[in-house]
Design a protein around this nucleic acid. Sequence first.
DNA 1: CCTGGGGGTAGGG
DNA 2: CCCTACCCCCAGG
Length: 285
Amino acid sequence: MGNPKQKWTAEEEEALRAGVAKHGPGKWKNIQKDPEFNPFLFSRSNIDLKDKWRNMSISAGEKVRSSKPKASSDALPLPPPPVTAAAVTPSSTSPQPSAHAAASATSDAVVFDPSKSTVDSKTAPKYNALIFEAISALNEPNGVDTGAIINYIEQRQELPQSFKRQLSSRLRRLVSQEKLEKVHNCYKIKKTSSFGSKVPSPKQKDFQRKQLDSAGFVNTGDTIEKAAVAAAYRIADAENKSFVAAEAVKEAERIAKMADETESLLQLAKEIFEKCSHGELVLIA
DNA sequence: CCTGGGGGTAGGG
DNA sequence: CCCTACCCCCAGG
C-alpha cells in the first residue's frame, strides 16, 4: 500500500555493480552488508539487489522474457570478478577506502549488440559510471578534462559518437548535481564524503519498512591510513603531471573558453532535448 | 538463513 | 497496446 515504487538511482546502481565486481555475483548479503555500499543500499534488501542485478543483466544483453527472438546466445551479460588491478591504488586489494570507492570498481564492458545497430539507450546509465571511473583512475589533482575522459574510456571499449556529444551535457549535469566539481575546464570528483552522503540529492526522503541500521559506515581508522598512503603516492606522481598539465590547461583553457561559449548554446538545446525525451534517447551521430 | 527463479503489477512510450 | 522496471512469492541448498 504505502509503496509508491522506489526507482533505483544511479548511485545505487553503481554501488551494486561495484559490489558485484568486488564480491562477485551471488553474494548479495555481503554486498548489502559491506560498509562501503551499505550507505547506498541500506534501503534495499539482498533480494532487491538480486532482482536489480537480474534486470540490469537482462537489459544490458539478451532478452529472454517477452518477445525478443535473438539468435546471438553469446554476449555474457555478466562481467565476473576479474578483480582488475586498480589503476592507481598502490596497495589495496581488499575493500577500498572511502576515497572513490564505488567508482573504482571496473564496470563491465558495455555489451554491444551488433545486430541492433542502434545506439542502445540502456548504456546511458553506464556512462556515468564510466565517467566516474575514468576520473577516479586518472586521479589528476587538477582534474580531468573532457578529452582525457574520452581518451581513457576509449581505450577500453568502443564508444559511439553520441557519447562524445553527450559527455559535455552529462558532465555539466553531474556538476549541477554536485557530484562533480569543475575547476577551469577540468572535472574532479566532489569530495563530499565521496559517495557516502547524497545531501543534495532529494532522494529517499522517507524510510520504508526496511531496516535502517546502516550505522556501521562510520568506519575510520585504517581507512585514513590507506588514504594517506595513496595520497602520498598520488602527490609524487601528480607533481610531475601537474607541471605538464598546468601548461596544457593554460592552453586548453583558452581554447575551451571559446568552445564553451559556443558549446553552452548547444548544450542548452541538448539538455532540453534530453529532458523532453526523459533523459535517454538514441542520438544519431 | 540466503540465493535463484517465476510471476504479477504499475508506469511510460 | 506493448514494453520495461520494481516488487513479492516460492522452492532449493
